[in-house]
Design a protein around this nucleic acid. Structure first.
Lengths: 240, 240
DNA sequence: ACTGATAAGTGTCAAAGAGACACTATTATT
DNA sequence: AATAATAGTGTCTCTTTGACACTTATCAGT
């Protein structure tokens, strides 16, 4: 670093410039009882106190080295969940999304098994899974409604050409369950045969050898994910 | 808004909380003389003074209503370019990307015709197109190298299933030029026949009826874009 | 003009993968 | 044992792509 840059930094003070707010939020989605659900927390403080909101918070400059660290940390804090992977959804910023001032949030999103945070959720009343279809009837904080829609849209696209959707299920799972996740995201039924062909050709799932009877009928094979599942992409989309 | 929220806001002062830096940057890419190029500006002030950097700047709370406004405004400021569309690439934030402190930038990206800012670039020496292959040899400010790579990767993906790449060309253009943009992004040659079939089935380009001789050989048809081009997606990727 | 080189545009075949749908297999229930 | 229900399979057709040879239109040099 040059001497002049060093002297510039010595006299630089961020507080001399207009201040903007920067937060992180997480859109966690799952599949349970034939529904897509999103994880929300009830706000305990102003603004929008009492409203349901995405789990999130501000950057902690000591604890967080990157944006993603902040997302993970506040998620762990508020819901007890630590998903194995999380993906950036985008930044949402405007003058009027937060009454405190010009505000931006960087949203992250992930699919996790329903049970992954059941224990924590059972013990507290301020975090809860909600059917994504029922969000309209809920008073959500800030622009979180729109951010959730962006998260769902992200995975709707991915459902067309990938199997990351398996991350919404506890292992082992049946093809029926995985297919239902896709169908709910895409909003269309999918041919069983087509779906199985894609899974076999992808190589990112493996049969456990076990079977399981869901309710009635022939028992279904059980599957687990394999390492490449997050990155695998089909060259052709399924019936979009 | 409730009375208690109002009183909370009356006493709220953003300056009481730790301050983070938030900026916007733009990765503008184009095609010229059989090369992919990225638009950079030379930094006139500390930090990283004299380094080439992405055009960008801080939020202006009065002028900017949204993040995208800030990206467009600082782009217009620094390079004289006002692309018709721009797309969010992502947020890049960490403790050490900027010596001034914990900093986040929201990067936007777009493809524009080379000529779109030729006039401005000719008149000033502080903004210039660079071959993307030659960036390694350049001292780029902050983490801009990585952000540019993310931008290229974004359009590499889009080149597999869309024709937004046409936005990198001045109209009218030949299929050869459009195909070259795809080939440079993907890093593979594409069969002329396959490429033409996709264009015809998409319906997002139209022939002008004119033809043009590039150098020698049969004259090539000239094409223009049609409205749906930004959103059109093929169901199947081209040879990735 | 004629001819050859060059590049744009076209015809066509085979392979891959998806949709459709009927058929078989395996379980629970009666 | 018969029936219903659901998982899994066989197979046909249709669409799209890659491959590659073939035709067409221009330029440059004779």
């Amino acid at each position: 670093m040059s001497e002049s840059e060093q002297s510039f930094l010595n006299t630089y003070n961020a507080a001399d410039y207009p201040i903007v707010l920067l937060s992180v939020d997480a859109v966690l989605l799952t599949y349970h009882e034939d529904r897509l659900k999103v994880l929300l927390v009830e706000r305990a403080s102003h603004p929008a106190i009492g409203c349901w909101a995405l789990p999130g918070g501000f950057i902690d400059q000591r604890a967080d080295n990157q944006l993603e660290d902040a997302a993970m940390r506040s998620l762990k804090n508020k819901t007890g969940v630590a998903p194995p992977y999380i993906e950036q959804l985008g930044a949402f910023g405007s003058a009027d999304r937060d009454p405190r001032g010009w505000s931006t949030t960087v949203a992250y999103t992930a699919l996790i098994p329903y049970a992954a945070c059941a224990a924590h959720i059972d013990s507290v009343s301020d975090s809860q899974w909600f059917d994504v279809d029922r969000l309209k009837t809920l008073k959500l904080a800030f622009d979180h409604q729109r951010i959730i829609e962006a998260g769902i849209e992200r995975f709707r696209q991915k459902a067309l050409y990938s199997l990351v959707t398996a991350r919404a299920l506890a292992e082992p799972f049946t093809l029926y369950e995985l297919r239902r996740v896709h169908e709910l995201l895409i909003g269309k039924t999918i041919q069983r045969k087509s779906f199985l062909r894609r899974i076999e050709s992808s190589g990112v799932l493996k049969e456990t050898g076990e079977t399981k009877v869901i309710d009635k009928g022939r028992p279904a094979m059980l599957y687990k994910t394999r390492p490449g599942i997050d990155d695998y992409r089909f060259v052709r989309n399924i019936d979009g």
